Amino acid sequence: MPVIRWVGVAATALALGTLFATPPDAPVKKTDAFLDAETTGLLNIEATECFDDPEYDRMANDKVVVYVPCTEGADNQSYGFVHAAEGTFDRPTVAAFGWDRCGQAFDKLWRGPSAEGLDFYPVLPTAETWADGDRVIMCVVYRPTGRLPDSVLPLAGR
């Protein structure tokens, strides 16, 4: 009798666990806090290049962003940079500027059906990098439901 109860309890726990689990294909919303200018490897990424989400690297003892050729599929693609004005670092103001400017560029590049399934986020300087003169905000496109299969930048002349 105790074995049957244990099996029943285990089955109930398993059923409840799946009730509260996040589905594996749940969309991911990346914000301006997802990455920042101090994320290791990020400064090696140029406009139009693809890269994966940061993963912990034992050698670096930190989370690291790694360049990936777009043709191999990637989590993100840089589609440009915008420059914030000089002044005192105010994260909310810099973030609002990044969302606005990256959003304008996103809307120009991806219109109508080509924008379906894509989203963007800005990568901001930090107070530390700002103090060193960094005013650059990277604009990044990604697919909330999974990896980009290739470059998603529209071809010139289309």
Rank of each mutant, 00 (worst) to 15 (best):
V28Q: 07
A37K: 05
D75G: 11
E46Q: 09
P149I: 09
P27A: 06
T126Y: 10
C50A: 14
P125R: 01
N61P: 02
V82G: 04
R101N: 08
M1T: 15
D25Y: 06
L153P: 02
M59P: 05
L109P: 00
F97C: 08
L153D: 05
F89Q: 06
A115H: 01
F20S: 11
G17Q: 05
D25N: 11
V3G: 04
G41M: 02
S114Y: 07
R158E: 14
R5A: 12
S114P: 00
T39W: 05
D132Y: 14
E55S: 09
A13R: 05
G103K: 07
V7E: 08
A105W: 00
V123G: 03
F97M: 12
P149G: 07
F51L: 00
V136P: 02
M1F: 14
T93F: 10
D57H: 00
P125F: 08
C139Q: 04
G80P: 04
I4A: 10
R158M: 14
T88D: 11
G87N: 11
R147F: 01
P149R: 08
L43A: 15
A105I: 05
D150H: 08
G17E: 12
T22P: 06
T71W: 03
P125M: 14
V64Q: 03
M138E: 13
H83W: 03
T18P: 03
E46G: 05
L118D: 05
A11Q: 13
F34A: 15
Q77R: 04
E86L: 12
A85T: 11
L153Q: 04
V141A: 14
F89T: 06
T71S: 12
T93A: 15
R147P: 01
P113S: 13
A131M: 13
P23A: 15
A85M: 11
P144N: 07
F97V: 13
V152P: 01
T48W: 08
W130D: 08
T39C: 08
A60Q: 14
R5D: 09
E116W: 04
A156G: 09
T71D: 04
D150P: 00
E128N: 06
